[in-house]
Design a binder for these strands. Structure first.
Lengths: 197, 197
DNA sequence: CCATTATGGAACATTCATGTTCCATTCTGA
DNA sequence: TCAGAATGGAACATGAATGTTCCATAATGG
């Protein structure tokens, strides 16, 4: 859905422009994740592009940020949809979801710091099928007796984001082996950090 | 320790000035937590103080931010020390820690968004006894067979912050009852979100 | 009640990110 | 190879936040 429109937009401009646009968006997400008040010059530099070029693609700073937010939402949404959460046992679906999220943690990291921006996006443009399918998975898991039924869907979802984010950061810092991030997050998600006795 | 020096600093100035300084620091933490690029004018307004007064207390914007970071670290550190993590069973100590953290979540929320600022603080000024005692508690718990021994101390600590932060936010949004936040965080920390079968 | 301390606000200078224009240069694709 | 597309960079205008100064007023505390 979102990716379809993105592709059609992309094919409307030359391959060169398309690549440049992508480079700017990626650089923006990376730089802004670390420093929310980063300069356009810094973003341009990170994208290996002149500041002028940035203005050619995005009139406003605001427009750039909105585009970056939208791009991240799309990226995360697509990878969630790829995980096919409605298929198979809830537990395995959750494993796929966590793995998918960890793989897009750069986008998550950026979005995490933009609580105000999320509301800037026109809700109509963003049906948020992805978000809904996550909530449905959680509810399904609770109904199937797989997830803790004594806490809310909201809580499980937010914990999920928090753990994924933490895992992604740990991986980026080298505190966890790249391939072990998802496994660790899953382990903690499922069993917590208490050993019992 | 930190609080001692803070108090001695405080007692060096008049009660009036001390209260004003405190109001500014508190307002700064609150406002900046929500909007990292908030204006000094906004902070001044939140503190019910003239912008001029802010400059009287903190020469730079940078100085204000550094002071606010330091203040939050001190506040969190103090409440951790109050929890007496070295006493009693590790599990109970962890309960006290989580409860203490949840109670200072406003400071956590501010610090969470200032990753770069943490490094701005002179490490020499900040022995971080609190941080060390948390890590010691975790290690002790692992040694006693209470906490998961198959993940690192770092991971447990970071997960702890993430869950606490998430809980604090949920409480602030009214998604969790105020008094239930700590209990929910503890439950998730210990058991995770998977039910077994 | 008075001297001192603390504050608020206006007015002003300064700095810096932003946004725009223009032109020379490089790149791309036919 | 050649025309059009795309870019980089300099130069400039603008606006907003910052930082400073000054003075009148209010609060504090002895």
């Amino acid at each position: 859905m979102t990716s379809t429109s993105a592709e059609s937009t992309a094919s409307a401009e030359s391959p060169t422009r398309s690549r440049t646009r992508r480079a700017i968006l990626t650089a923006a997400a990376t730089v802004l994740a670390r420093n929310r008040s980063a300069t356009l010059a810094e973003i341009a530099e990170a994208a290996a592009v002149g500041r002028t070029t940035v203005h050619r693609y995005f009139a406003d700073r605001d427009e750039l940020i909105k585009a970056t937010v939208a791009d991240s939402i799309t990226a995360i949404g697509d990878s969630i949809l790829d995980a096919r959460l409605e298929e198979g046992p809830a537990r395995e679906a959750m494993h796929r979801l966590i793995t998918a999220m960890v793989d897009t943690y750069e986008h998550m990291m950026f979005l995490w710091g933009e609580p105000a921006m999320l509301e800037l996006i026109d809700p109509a443009d963003n049906p948020d099928i992805a978000d809904r399918s996550v909530r449905e998975l959680i509810a399904r898991g609770q109904a199937e007796g797989v997830f803790d039924p004594d806490v809310s869907v909201d809580w499980i979802q937010q914990t999920l984001w928090a753990l994924t984010y933490t895992g992604g950061e740990a991986g980026a810092k080298g505190e966890l082996p790249r391939h072990g991030v998802a496994a660790t997050v899953i382990r903690t998600f499922e069993r917590g950090l208490y050993r019992g006795n």
